[in-house]
Amino acid sequence: MSKVTFETLRALNREMFGGRWSEDDLRQLVDPRFGVVSDFESMLHGLERILDKDLGDLPPDSPVAGCGE
């Protein structure tokens, strides 16, 4: 997978998300200023590895709420 560019994000924002995001918002994805969470590129690399995992027929998690003692 090649590095996502600002131009690609701008085009996706316009064509798929109705221009919902400002250019400042999109710039955070290629040039992050905050240290709150992983940056976009790290997330995509991490997800690439996760999507490669063969989990067989395992379904998504089921709720565990309210489990007794």
Binding site: D25, L29, L51
Partner: peptide, 27 residues
Amino acid sequence: DDIRAGLVLGQFLSAESYIQCKRLVAR
């Protein structure tokens, strides 16, 4: 600005990624 940076990141994550992550939670 910082929560907007998280929200916009969420916009570009695929449904496939979300479901695969939920499957990993089960694992």
